[in-house]
Design a protein around this nucleic acid. Sequence first.
DNA 1: GCTAAATGTTGAT
DNA 2: TCAACCTTTAGCT
Length: 263
Amino acid sequence: MPEGHTIHRLARDHRMWFAGRRVVVTSPQGRFDAAPGLDGSRLEDTEAFGKHLLYRFSRGRWIHIHLGLFGRLTTSATPKAPPRDTVRLRLANRDWYADLVGPTRCALIDAADRAELLARLGPDPLRAESRPSAAWARISHSDQPIAALLMDQRVLAGVGNVYRAELLYRSGLDPHLPGRELREEQWLELWEDLRRLMRAGVRANRIVTTRRNDRERVTGRVRSEDATYVYGRADEPCRVCGTLVRVTDLMDRRLYWCPTCQN
DNA sequence: GCTAAATGTTGAT
DNA sequence: TCAACCTTTAGCT
């Protein structure tokens, strides 16, 4: 679930449903200490930076959430169901409640913490003010493979294992190509494609990277098995050339790619 | 019922 | 490079 598009979608939805109103903040699991201090105060706004979600409260306080690999934030309409015992944080008002489960991080932070967080993130393709040059400065001087650079949140904020594999497939680039061997115009094309893919991801609230004509079924809702070119398709035939999709370990993550289309 | 795997990050060796 | 952390689910038995 959680790459940048998920977080931006949550920020957008929660701004609509929770911002500008008082919110009941509880921690059914008991592991979020700040809950009592914030409980009943007004949520001013939500923000998304890469995979980080922030809820702004008065007096320079934010709840900082990072879902990590298995975290989930689900929102439902009232009446409230009793929380399961793993719910770290529940935000609620009269109409809605959101339950956070299994996050890597859920903490109360101040303006300095927030500034520190933003300072260590690369440009987020989903934010209007982001510029690709900020990432290019690092990529163009790095010996790291482009597949590793794309997932490095200091280089680029919000890209995860699915988008990086799919982006590289769509561009025809070998994932192992060192950053310094990429040409600037290739990088700018990657950036544009990322924006396109991730914006579509926010809209649909899911990742779909296949072009219409490359799907087995062209009409109707995109089936999950048709949504990607290479991610999660190890040993299945490439949709374009038929070569078996390969999976390799790169920096402890599974990297999917087509050795024929990407070189 | 058990195990492994999953769209992630941090901090120690 | 490796382990730790956070939880759910799919695929076994």
